[in-house]
Amino acid sequence: MPQQPSAQRQAPPSKTNTLSLGIISVLILVLTMQIWLLTAALNESLDGNNAVKWPAFIASAVLFLAGAALLRYLPDPIRRANKAARHRRNTAGL
């Protein structure tokens, strides 16, 4: 079966835009929660309450791993693929 043209093998830009923005929004949310955990743990630790710091660290680490896992779903940049294809077409007959 002949391979489809490269443009049809890529997701439309509107879908990749939405996906990118969604991932960035989730990452900002994760960062906000981590900032809150850090400030709360530091405040409690300085006040002598040591019950919060380890749960806060575990929660922050879990949030970081969840955010890192999200990076796998980042769409490939469309511009770069098209540029490579154009360069190949331009230099094919040389």
Partner: peptide, 27 residues
């Protein structure tokens, strides 16, 4: 790019996790 920005956010998130770990062990 948005891709680079997302990776940067993840890097900062890692820094936050390291900071929380520091608070846990500093004493």
């Amino acid at each position: 790019t948005r891709r680079e920005f997302a990776k940067f956010l993840c890097l900062v998130s890692g820094g936050m996790a390291v900071g929380s770990g520091w608070v846990a062990v500093k004493d």
